[in-house]
């Protein structure tokens, strides 16, 4: 068990990629905080976690609200007393062409996907600095490099995450805190189903050199690697997990 006794906050952990990461971290012995806008669903993931990890906590949080993030970290500290790992996974994907894009949609996507990274990271940095250790891993996207029609705000937010990660890695290196990103290709979760038919999605999922439809579970190994001691000399990087669909 690579993460025994580590306290890990996973945002957006009630479903999809975040849920798979939370369960994976639990299997590796971490005390997992399942943080999500949907409190009831977060609690359901905690119930799934309990048989394996013993200690898990559900917290309802809006990562785009400063007070909500502050409350999240306070609850974690009350329960576990420390934070070793932060996984910034919470995100939304609204669809609109730029010419028709509403300002409030732009703000929502940037505030949640990128602003959430900022607020959650800022909240745990003092704790990690005091511990002289920590791991921050943010979920970016292949779209950060590639772009996507009707997803300019999403692409900007995910590319922003990469810039943010690099800068934060430089700030936190002297305190032995690593900061990295994962850029998945399109993943078979509920999120892409909101905007396209099942047939189109199934085809799209396999449009990559390996011909494999990525699942949330496929991202867990790379995340666990970056969170473990094995990756203690890797920082400021964006690791593509996309079956070879782009090679930036």
């Amino acid at each position: 068990m690579r993460l025994r006794e580590k306290v890990a906050i996973v945002t957006g952990a009630a479903q999809g990629i975040g849920r798979a990461i939370a369960l994976g971290m639990g299997r590796e012995g971490a005390k997992v905080v399942v943080a999500d806008l949907q409190g009831a669903r977060a609690q359901a993931v905690v119930n799934e976690l309990k048989p394996s990890s013993g200690e898990a906590l559900a917290v309802e949080v809006d990562v785009s609200r400063e007070s909500s993030v502050k409350s999240l970290v306070e609850q974690v500290l009350r329960r576990f007393g420390r934070v070793d790992i932060l996984i910034n996974d919470a995100g939304i994907y609204l669809r609109s062409l730029v010419a028709e894009m509403k300002e409030e949609d732009w703000d929502r996507v940037i505030d949640t996907n990128l602003g959430g990274n900022f607020l959650c990271s800022r909240a745990v940095v003092p704790l990690m600095r005091a511990q002289k250790s920590g791991r921050i891993i943010s979920i970016s996207s292949r779209i950060a490099h590639h772009g996507a029609i009707s997803g300019a705000h999403y692409a900007a937010s995910k590319a922003g995450i990469i810039g943010f990660v690099k800068a934060l890695a430089r700030e936190l290196g002297p305190d032995h805190i690593t900061v990295n990103a994962i850029c998945p290709g399109v993943v078979d979760t509920a999120q892409p189903r909101a905007h396209q038919s099942e047939t189109v999605l199934k085809e799209k999922l396999k449009e990559n050199p390996l011909g494999h439809a990525l699942t949330a579970e496929d991202l867990v190994g790379p995340i666990l690697f970056l969170a473990s001691d094995a990756a203690s000399y890797i920082t400021g990087q964006a690791l593509n997990v996309n079956c070879g669909s782009s090679m930036h």
């Binding site: 867990v220 190994g221 790379p222 666990l224």
Partner: peptide, 11 residues
């Protein structure tokens, strides 16, 4: 764990 990573450079 890296079954779906190809063509990439890990720094």
């Amino acid at each position: 764990e890296s079954s779906w990573i190809t063509g990439q450079t890990l720094h």
